[in-house]
Each structure stands twice: as structure tokens, then as C-alpha cells.
Design a binder for these strands. Structure first.
Length: 262
DNA sequence: ATGTCCAGCAGAGCTGGA
């Protein structure tokens, strides 16, 4: 059985309901994971999503900030929420699909501007979040699982527009990248996107601040899809829908898709 | 990477977060 999953930092699900619907209509992933919903769960505009076949949702929400939701055409039950680093934020939710796959949807802290936990508390929180995530999946070995989300780290040289220029920029510092690979390796996770698209620059985020994001193309690959070791060979195609970054009133992130045969 | 969006609070424009 083939199924397609997408992850997208939507930067307010209520403001961007129209383009969520557009993505659902035009690309119809079976499962759509959203981050930065910025909405309490009961104010997520489910009616339109439901009408397009997304009848199932698990979500963790809070007013104004953060928030993650998994919308699914496939029946799904809630499979827990973790508050890594005890920040009191809605940054993780998991769902177990009827096909036996567990999906973890994560919105990692951005980490502020300065890559030094002594002067920037948010950077410390980001490091703690990943360390706890590593320990959690080390203790709870993922099986038949997919982890997606805005992890706010671009690990590879080809995951940023200029590796050298970004070495001190939060999201691409060596300490973050090392921790990122620690989390991935100690959970036995496999990088699905780079497994399918091995060559060349690949981004999923372009700042709102650039005058012409498309021409300047100063992007970073912050959004990820990982698969547990036991299903790592079941994916067969991945793509970043770059065009979506140019839609009406866009998010600053483009959705990342992966298709699996299970 | 030098800028632009978003939500909350309040009831206009500022603030904090990304």
C-alpha cells in the first residue's frame, strides 16, 4: 500500500486556511502535518479540511504561538504528546495510522539569534529540546514510525545557500548539526528526503525578509522527514513544493512530501 | 543577514517571536 505524507510549517493555520485547502485539493497527501498553527486546537478550521476528506486530526495547540497538527484521510488515533525540555509549548504530537504507521510531528524551537546558551536562553532551550528528543527516542525505539517537522536546523552544506556564511548563524552551527545527527542516529532514524534527493542544494524555507526570495534563493532546509530503520527502504520518492512558497499570502516554508510503499 | 510577517492586546499601533 502506497501512501503520501507532507510536512509544512504553515505560520498560522487560520490565516492560511485558503492555501492549506489549495494544497489539499491540488496535491492531496494522505497525511498532512502542520507546524506553527498558532491556534488553540478547537479553533483550527476543520470544516473545510473535513470536506476534502481529511476527517481525522490529532493536534496540540496553544494561543498565539507554536502548535502542531496532523490531518489525515486515513483513520488515526492519538499516540501521545511530548513536552521536550519542559517548555510548556505545543511542539509535538503523535498519531497512529490505521495502516500501522506512527507519525511524530515536531516543531523544534528556533533558538533565537545568538548561538551561545550563556547569553541567549532560547539557544539553550533549543539544545535541551534536541537532547531530550534524543533520549526519548533512545528509550522508546521507534518502530514503523515517521518523524516529520520544522526542526529549525539545516544539517548539510547543501542544505543552506552558503555553508561558510552560515556557520555562526543559528540553524547551521556545528553544535546544532552535531546534536541533530545525534538525535537521528540514536533513534535509528533515516533521512528520507536526502535519501531520495541526494545531490545538490535543497531548501524548504526562504526568509520573508529577502526582497525577492526566488531570485536571491538564500534558502535553508529546515523541514525534515525521517523514517525508522525498519521502514527506511519503503520510501521511493520525495519532493519539496517550492512553488507553494510563491502562492498568495505564503508561509515562509514550502511543504516537503514523501511517498512510501508499505 | 539588515528585512517581513504573525498573534495578542486592545480597540491603534506597539511588542515579542520567528
Amino acid at each position: 500500500m502506497s501512501f503520501t505524507l507532507a510536512t509544512w510549517n504553515i505560520n498560522s493555520v487560520r490565516l492560511r486556511e485558503p492555501i492549506v485547502l489549495k494544497l489539499m485539493e491540488e496535491h492531496a497527501p494522505d497525511v498532512l502535518c502542520l507546524q506553527e498553527c498558532k491556534s488553540p486546537v478547537d479553533k483550527i478550521p476543520m470544516d473545510g479540511f473535513r470536506a476534502l476528506g481529511y476527517e481525522h486530526m490529532v493536534a496540540s495547540g496553544q494561543k498565539g504561538y507554536n502548535g502542531v497538527a496532523i490531518l489525515s484521510k486515513i483513520p488515526m488515533e492519538e499516540a501521545g504528546m511530548q513536552d521536550f525540555a519542559s517548555l510548556g509549548h505545543a511542539r509535538h504530537v503523535a498519531g497512529r495510522l490505521e495502516n500501522g504507521v506512527t507519525v511524530h510531528n515536531v516543531y523544534a524551537p528556533a533558538g533565537g539569534d545568538v548561538a551561545d546558551r550563556e547569553v541567549n536562553e532560547k539557544f539553550g532551550q533549543k539544545l535541551d529540546f534536541f537532547a531530550e528528543m534524543r533520549d526519548y527516542f533512545n528509550a522508546n525505539r521507534p518502530e514503523k514510525s515517521i518523524l516529520v517537522g520544522d526542526l529549525n536546523i539545516a544539517p548539510g552544506e547543501d542544505d543552506v545557500w552558503d555553508h561558510k556564511k552560515l556557520l555562526k548563524v543559528v540553524s547551521h552551527t556545528p553544535v546544532e548539526v552535531e546534536l541533530f545527527e545525534d538525535v537521528r542516529n540514536s533513534g535509528g532514524w533515516h533521512d528520507v528526503t536526502r535519501g531520495d534527493i541526494t545531490e545538490g542544494k535543497l531548501y524548504s524555507w526562504w526568509s520573508y525578509r529577502a526582497k525577492d526570495w526566488d531570485t536571491a534563493d538564500k534558502g535553508r532546509r529546515l523541514d525534515h522527514i525521517w523514517a525508522s530503520d525498519d521502514i527506511k527502504n519503503t520510501h521511493h520518492s520525495s519532493r519539496v513544493l517550492r512553488d507553494v512558497r510563491g502562492w498568495e499570502k505564503p508561509s515562509d516554508h514550502a511543504p516537503v512530501f514523501a511517498t512510501f510503499d508499505l
